[in-house]
Design a protein around this nucleic acid. Sequence first.
DNA 1: GGTGAAACGCCAACCAT
DNA 2: ATGGTTGGCGTTTCACC
Lengths: 143, 143
Amino acid sequence: MDDIDRMLIGLLEEDATRSYAVLGKAVGLSSGAAHERVRKLRERGVIRRTTIEVDQAALGRAVTAYVLVDGSTWMGDSADRLAAIPEIEEAHVIAGPASVLLKVRMAGTVELQDVLRRVFGVDGVTGTRTIVVLETLFERTLK
Amino acid sequence: MDDIDRMLIGLLEEDATRSYAVLGKAVGLSSGAAHERVRKLRERGVIRRTTIEVDQAALGRAVTAYVLVDGSTWMGDSADRLAAIPEIEEAHVIAGPASVLLKVRMAGTVELQDVLRRVFGVDGVTGTRTIVVLETLFERTLK
DNA sequence: GGTGAAACGCCAACCAT
DNA sequence: ATGGTTGGCGTTTCACC
């Protein structure tokens, strides 16, 4: 993992359709060498996969919210139950004012209410506090 | 935006390296037609870009935290000042117990302290409450 | 909008340096 | 790690439907 690897990752985060010829030129290597480095980054799991970034609002998910979940038991074991709720995009065990923090996305506030109902249905959940996002200033990939 | 478009988006989220021939076969279209649909989805901004998913821990960002920021003024105007802090991955204006919610990632708790210092340096910031992530149960793309 | 085929360009694999 | 070469596949475009 040197600076060239980091440059390659940055370039691919910006645009994963770039050819190895272009990548190589950008970092001062041949296309073959660039290709080999990227292959190893994938192999080692540093690059997990190549994917697309989708405008969620265009898909009808206009509302984003964060939900602080309080639990009476260790909630780490409830990961599967939470994962079964499709509107949950992220779930983290946290240190602080709750047990788990969820990021959820759905069409509107009516659907948000329904998501909260399902979260309450997970074993051990004793309460939730919801933070509704009014405007996303930015969501980006780190350099 | 019909079901075929949604299927194409789902397939590309899973693996954006799939060929148009494969995509077409999966949704029951020719490769040319699949190509045309994806081109239009990009043109309309539904697909923002194709990118890679990176293991942040492998890049030395082992600690994730959420920071609730209190402000004395309308913080939406501070987006540029916040964006200048590279460790901030997301920034949202929220309804609830603070003005802004940040998602931050960095090497360790020492660096977290330094990020908080810089957040305090942004005009209008009167306080912060930090939620440290102990374990990420999942971070995924929505179906 | 979709089809099918043809032309082009890029990737992947090789090897000698 | 380079640079040249080759084969094969995917992308892109086109006339046609």
